[in-house]
């Protein structure tokens, strides 16, 4: 749906300093473009739960991090999300790849489609479902609105056929 260059430019325009990430086949190819763009640093972690802790440290230290993971990693991240977003009340923004949303033939019956949005709602993460490249302006607006409100937000990026 989006090229890495588009995402790199958007992160740079929003002042994102670090992207803390575990890749999947949609969001992973963005890494190279983000690094080539040279504004936002890519921080690679080994599992998604780590990403929230790293982002918390970056936020405390004055940076503007974003967590970039697939929805399966959102499921993996539960206790880290609870602690970072709700104990410490840090307004960490995330970009979540929504596996199978646009191509349900690849993994018929993929339970990511069942649990992703209820999980985001359970964690009180204000998300926008992004299904079209036309929504890129809405993405920026949502990011800025969440920052202004001091609350955690997310872009839920539909994955599969664009």
């Amino acid at each position: 749906m989006f090229s890495g260059e588009e995402i790199a430019r958007l992160f740079a325009a929003l002042g994102v300093t670090h992207v803390v990430t575990v890749p999947d086949s949609t969001i992973g190819p963005w890494q190279g473009a983000i690094e080539r763009h040279g504004v936002t640093r890519v921080v690679r972690v080994c599992r998604e739960g780590e990403a929230w802790g790293v982002a918390a440290g970056l936020h405390w230290g004055g940076a503007k991090p974003v967590v970039l993971i697939q929805c399966t990693g959102l499921f993996e991240s539960g206790d880290a999300i609870r602690n970072v977003l709700h104990d410490w009340k840090l307004p960490i923004f995330s970009v979540i790849g929504y596996r199978s949303y646009l191509n349900q033939d690849t993994l018929p019956g993929d339970t990511c489609l069942v649990f992703t949005e209820p999980t985001l709602e359970a964690w009180w993460i204000d998300y926008r479902l992004i299904t079209s490249p036309d929504q890129i302006n809405e993405m920026g607006q949502h990011y800025e609105a969440c920052r202004a409100a001091g609350k955690p937000g997310a872009w839920l990026i539909a994955e599969g056929k664009a």
């Binding site: 802790g53 970056l58 230290g61 206790d79 880290a80 104990d87």
Partner: peptide, 22 residues
């Protein structure tokens, strides 16, 4: 930074983020 309450195991990750930002 006293991590109480914590998510067990996150101290090293939080330290990494702090070290990068500072």
């Amino acid at each position: 930074l006293v991590l109480v309450p914590s998510a067990m195991g996150q101290a090293t990750s939080m330290g990494l983020g702090l070290a990068l930002a500072q």
